[in-house]
Design a protein around this nucleic acid. Structure first.
Lengths: 222, 222
DNA sequence: GTGAGTTTCTATACATGTAAAGAAAGTAGC
DNA sequence: GCTACTTTCTTTACATGTATAGAAACTCAC
């Protein structure tokens, strides 16, 4: 990996492409043609290089996607006016991250990679942890609380967008549909009762309600 | 796909392998050598067929993994004695699913695919929804509550196991580590304060606490 | 039996991520 | 200039999932 501020003249063959150029070009491809069109060869061609050359600037494709996400976050994640009340501040901070992430559907492949810990997201993490501490949680429980919020948020996005993707590229009945069709009302009465409304209920966006519940639960002394 | 109870004699060329055989063999490979060794070609060889022949019994590799998960759930997911108290029943039901899923680390590729809706898991879903209703939630809010629990559960497993996997096959510092190293205490005081304990805190298993908080929050009238 | 229809299986081909080997293009010391 | 060293880039190759075309093995209607 290149050293940005080498004290002396750079050693070795001078690079013809940079990590920034790779990321920028990748972003352009993703923006205009979707993440499905982003392949290493295609990206290399666009840059005027070879696929393997990219691997000197990016560890692998997954890292490239993480960098893209970082880049995306840095460009679009605005810091909103947060409410003064700490509990509400937590909710708004988490919801803002959630909204930003939900807006880029190609995120799933990356989201599972790690905590979302791009530099631009750290501020939101700070707000959440700080809010939890201000509400009376000791610091380590605040960190645990943040993690719970992150699990919930990441899970919502991953499950939801994958389900959506599956729906678009496949018409056959899903497991869920089959399972509900064969459902035995005497053994699973509640599910039988709501079976008809399951799909629409599931389609509703209830992220915020769940988030509020979670935050409330985290803050209620046990 | 084959019709299990065809009224007349089966039409077409008689199959030489069955979906069951495919799944069983796949399971054996996964159990003995890990999911990384499960390739379509390898599986076909083991069965004594060709890779493409598998595609008549399984839609694609992802479906095969889903079927494997179903199979796994059907074999190992025991229905525990659930507490009578509904709130506690919800917690135990969710925790049981969580424990079962967390035990098979290859699950990540599948988990994001859909709700976990294998037939054997439906009973747990029933218990959760029923518990929420018994605690006073109207049915549609109970379904939303179940979804929140599922998001949290799936998110925990996905994030945690992917992080673990990444740690094993890569020694270089993660983004998180780098981000924390460069952290500016004047801008992000709370994070700076807990920076040293972040890694150990994150390593702790706090699924149950988070789950309890979430369930509590879902059940507190707003 | 023959031909049509149906299902399963085989052979081949392709796109993709990336490993491995080594060539290319520079600097540093002499 | 020459050699050693370092970094970047190119070439080639491979494993993998899966699309496509068509062969194979059956049943059925006649």
């Amino acid at each position: 990996m290149p050293q940005p501020s080498a004290p002396r003249k750079a050693l070795g063959r001078p690079p013809r492409i940079s990590r920034e150029e790779v990321i920028e070009t990748a972003r352009r491809i993703v923006d205009t043609e979707g993440v499905g069109r982003l392949t290493m060869r295609r990206l290399a061609m666009e840059i005027g290089s070879t696929a393997m050359a990219l691997y000197h600037h990016v560890r692998n494709k997954e890292e490239l996607l993480v960098l893209l996400l970082d880049d995306y976050a840095a460009r679009t994640l605005q810091r909103p006016e947060l409410p003064a009340q700490p509990r509400e501040r937590i909710v708004v901070a988490a919801a803002t991250i959630h909204e930003a992430l939900a807006a880029c559907p190609w995120i799933v492949e990356v989201l599972t990679a790690d905590d979302l810990m791009s530099t631009s997201a750290l501020w939101f993490v700070e707000q959440i942890v700080d809010g939890l501490v201000e509400c009376g949680l000791p610091p380590e429980r605040a960190v645990h609380g943040y993690r719970a919020i992150w699990y919930y948020t990441a899970g919502e996005i991953v499950v939801r967008t994958t389900a959506a993707r599956r729906r678009t590229d496949d018409d056959r009945p899903t497991y869920r549909e089959r399972a509900f069709a064969e459902l035995d009302p005497s053994e699973l009465p509640r599910l039988a009762q709501v079976a008809d409304h399951w799909a629409p209920l599931t389609a509703e966006d209830t992220y915020l309600e769940g988030l509020r519940a979670l935050v409330d639960g985290l803050l209620t002394p046990r």
